[in-house]
Write a protein that binds this DNA or RNA. Structure first.
Length: 576
RNA sequence: GCGCCCGUAGCUCAAUUGGAUAGAGUGUUGGCCUCCGAAGCCAAAGGUUGUGGGUUCGAUCCCCGCCGGGCGCACCA
């Protein structure tokens, strides 16, 4: 959580106010520099500081009086045009547009767009997406993938060394069922041209048969045991399931522009599980109960956690502990972050606590998000009401393509399709990223694929219009606008500058709170201000100084829109 | 029964983590392309923030009690 002011503007103002409060309160020492915030209502000024209210008790002085004393104690710094006390003790600050312009110019020419590089020297393992082998990805996978990827990008933007790990579900009891189904319910031809869809079909078929046929279930178990014991045939089949699945996942990830550094599925840790049990026993954490090996967690106020089942097999808690152990050993991360749905909260609390007791020093963090469901309830493979992720992406691109064809009929087909992909996929991602992850989502095609209003295409449209304007400027004036002098005049120009300067804070907050929607909301507000500016402020027709200044403002807005959308994993075509 | 989360405009969601007059989109109503891209802009209408108390200068936010909904609570991950 960032308790201090982030942007250079806020830091500069905070430094002045720190001196002012110190001068007004010689007896006291300030614990933290005063927090300067962007103002809630523009009619009051540009920034506000609420510190007087917080300090009033300790200072034994009415907050208003304290605020006035602080302002009287030090002269206004040059960038501050006006500072006044309002209400119970707010300090409202108005700064010069010229100063804001300088700050914004510095920020947008910085390679990190002003984002503090506080992650340098720190490693984070980020565990997200993690679909199950032999099942197609469905719309339920979109949240972990898209939110996880945005967090990935946000962390990297702050200088963290991120290891994105796709922790595939590639091991477990389902493989006995799957192997037997594969051998019995497929034609030779189907086995040759195996797909994930076929695997899913045989899984359901084989699973259903276990319900009515005891001996079938036994055979499945036998196949699983053979697999676990390293039977060459079963191992080869299992490996094939994984290869085919990964191949298909990669097709989706390519469309979503998602990349992982490592793919260590559950099977990767299989050989380490006995060692985990030994470690737990050595640490006197594990005890026998009802034939199973458990970790009692009464002290933490949690349920017991099973680490070895009564049949001797390990379960997911064991695997997850082994995973942490292995990651600590291999990467020595400061933090390990998991992005999964809300149902796993208890499980994470349990095994985080166990890892703590085992002395693993990485900071473990569970970022959970609300379940996605259909209007009629949850979906599941067995109910057969899943919507495949690829179908969603196809539909998104199809809807975008229809609009592109209408608005840009002169464009070649291939280019139209490329554009439709950027827009459609962007819309799908934004629909998710613009909401607080903790909320539940009831899936609705029109909502998931919105192309107007508060949506990715709105932001992409704003960006494309800027690009187009800059091109016209370059053609007309014959110089690049990046070196133009800034001379902001109008209120909307100042508002745009103020908003541009909030970018680093938005990015850092989004990352700290694990809420990409903070950044999405910010970008939307910025694009809205820009659209308003664009509507009311002629650029190319204005006199030379105004024109040059405004086009420069446009380039800065473009830089932030592009940078911000990239952090969300959303593309920014130059023309849409 | 216990635990976690949610409840904000007709609908879908925000609210800078306790700040000023609770904001957007969508839908409805009206206006704006001889002018840099109308996927846009401007305006109107729409609220007792589920409910009852408490904490304080100040509460959508924190605490307690209800009501309504979601999810999880020993061998599936």
């Amino acid at each position: 959580m960032s308790e201090t002011s982030v942007t250079p503007c806020e830091v500069a103002l905070s430094a002045w106010l720190a001196e002012a409060f110190t001068a007004a309160l010689p007896e006291q020492t300030l614990a933290n520099p005063p927090r300067v915030l962007s103002i809630t209502n523009p009619q009051f000024g540009d920034f506000q500081c609420n510190e007087a209210m917080a300090l009033a008790k300790a200072a034994k002085m009415p907050p208003r009086q304290l605020a006035e004393a602080a302002l009287a104690a030090k002269p206004l710094p040059p960038m501050v045009e006006k500072a006044e006390v309002a209400g119970p003790g707010f300090i409202n600050i108005t700064v010069s547009s010229k100063w804001l312009a300088e700050q914004a110019a510095a920020m947008t020419s910085d390679q990190h767009l002003g984002i503090p590089q506080s992650g340098i020297g720190h490693t984070v393992v980020l565990d997200y997406s993690s679909p199950n082998v032999a099942k197609p990805m469905h719309i339920g996978h979109i949240r972990s993938t898209v939110i996880g990827n945005a967090l990935d990008r946000l962390l990297r933007a702050q200088g963290y060394a991120v290891i994105a790990d796709n922790h595939l579900g590639d091991w477990g009891t389902q493989f006995g069922i799957l192997i037997l189904g594969y051998r019995n319910f497929l034609t030779d031809d189907e086995r040759t041209n195996l797909t994930v869809e076929l695997l899913e079909r045989v899984y359901v078929q084989s699973y259903n048969k276990t319900k009515e046929d005891e001996t079938w279930m036994e055979q499945c178990r036998a196949e699983l045991v053979k697999l676990q014991q390293g039977d060459a045939d079963n191992l080869a089949v299992w490996k094939r399931f994984i290869d085919i699945s990964i191949n298909e996942f990669n097709r989706v990830y390519a469309r979503l522009d998602v990349k992982f550094d490592i793919w260590r599925g559950e099977s990767y840790y299989n050989a380490m599980l006995p060692g985990v049990i030994t470690a737990l026993q050595d640490a006197k954490l594990a005890t026998e109960s009802e034939g199973a090996l458990i970790v009692d967690m009464k002290d933490e106020g949690l349920q017991v956690c099973i680490v070895r089942k009564s049949d001797g097999a390990y379960n997911y808690a064991t695997t997850d502990i082994a995973t942490v152990r292995s990651r600590v050993q291999d990467f020595n991360p400061d933090r390990i972050v998991y992005v999964t749905d809300e149902r796993q909260q208890l499980h994470f609390k349990q095994f985080f606590a166990i890892c703590g007791k085992l002395g693993y020093k990485a900071n473990l963090q569970h970022v959970w998000f609300g379940l996605m469901r259909l209007p009629e309830g949850t979906f599941s493979t067995r109910q057969g009401n899943v919507i495949k992720l690829e179908a969603l992406l196809d539909e998104a691109e199809a809807r975008a393509l229809a609009i592109v064809r209408e608005s840009r009929p002169e464009m070649p087909e291939a280019q139209q399709r490329e554009l439709a992909a950027a827009i459609g996929i962007g819309a799908v991602k934004y629909a998710d990223l613009s909401h607080d992850p903790k909320g539940m989502i009831v899936f609705d095609w029109d909502r998931a694929l919105a192309l107007d209003g508060n949506s990715a295409p709105y932001l992409q449209y704003a960006y494309a219009r800027i690009c187009s304007l800059i091109d016209k400027y370059a053609a007309q004036v014959g110089k690049a606008p990046e070196a133009n002098a800034l001379a902001p005049e109008t209120p909307v120009e100042k508002q745009l500058l103020l908003q541009l300067l909030q970018f680093p804070a938005a990015a850092v907050s989004a990352s700290d709170a694990n809420k990409p929607n903070i950044l999405a909301d910010y970008l939307y507000a910025l694009a809205k201000t820009y659209s308003s500016f664009y509507q009311s402020s002629p650029v190319l027709q204005a006199d030379e100084a105004t024109r040059d200044s405004r086009v420069r403002l446009c380039t800065m807005t473009a830089a932030i829109l592009r940078g911000g959308l990239t952090l969300l994993g959303i593309q920014t075509p130059n023309r849409i």
